[in-house]
Amino acid sequence: METLRPLSGLLAALLLAPLLPGVANKVKAFFGGRKGQPVLQLYYDLAKLLRKTPVYSVTSTWIFKAGPAVGLGALLLALTATPFAGRSAPLAFDGDLMLVVYLLGLARFATVLAALDTGSAFEGMGASREAQFAVFAEPAFMLGLGALACITGSVSLSGIFGALTVATWAAAAPVLLLLTAAFFVVMLAENSRVPADDPNTHLELTMIHEVMVLDHSGPDLAFILYGASLKLWFFAALIACMVLPRHSGAWATDTGLFLLAVIGVAAAVGAVESAMARLRLLKVPYLLITAFAFSALALILQLAR
């Protein structure tokens, strides 16, 4: 049973991840006074796409076809190291946060290469921007994790989020608040949400992630959409672990609260999306620099106390 519980968390994450974009969309529809698409829309989409026959550009090679699979594989592995409800993940070791950050990098690498493989000007543009924003998002994320390592004295994701307790919050509330804000901004940028990117626009010069996957279809597109929802789950789970430091010890209560928190994060994404406009493209790095400043400030505050 003890070995099965981490796996049950992983399984829940894999099954429930496509719910999160649906929740965000529902919240947006609520703010817009619309009924909106069903919460389960992504499940329907995935089921349909898996049954479709893809179309490939004559320009593209095996790299284009491998891109979505590599991206999804990297995210699946990253999710095995993601803590669930404050409990240890199936894969947990000292330095696993490096593995996770680099796996996100691998997914990005594969997506960007696949985009370049089509030879399309638009996809190249999206690829270039994705690479650019990552340069600012990743240091902010890593430094934030470093600050958490400094607070908790642990260097694995499971260790860090297992060691976050109410006492930690009482001792370092401002620092943890700053870090939560930084992670939230990084989540918005990494998951191509407003204000960094707009998941709704499919045909604009300003879009980033959506334009990179324009040419994918069928099961490949399903891999990409599922991978994107896993990525959102990853960040939402980390933020949920941050803001839920108390664990009752009862498995069902903890799990329920955690799932509520994850869905709450997704709802917050939807709320931000409803309340804000997309930033100008030139300003997106500034947003991420601000997130970096928050992480750095948190670390300095922690060290200076």
């Binding site: 400043a293 400030l297 300095i300 505050l301 060290l303 200076a304 106390r305």
Partner: peptide, 27 residues
């Protein structure tokens, strides 16, 4: 932003060096 962060680093360092009475309030 870099100036602001740098100034805060410098301020923390200076603050740890100055012989000041203990205030009980961090930072």
């Amino acid at each position: 932003v870099a100036f602001c962060l740098g100034s805060f680093v410098a301020a923390s360092w200076l603050g740890s060096r100055l012989p000041l009475p203990e205030t009980g309030v961090a930072w």
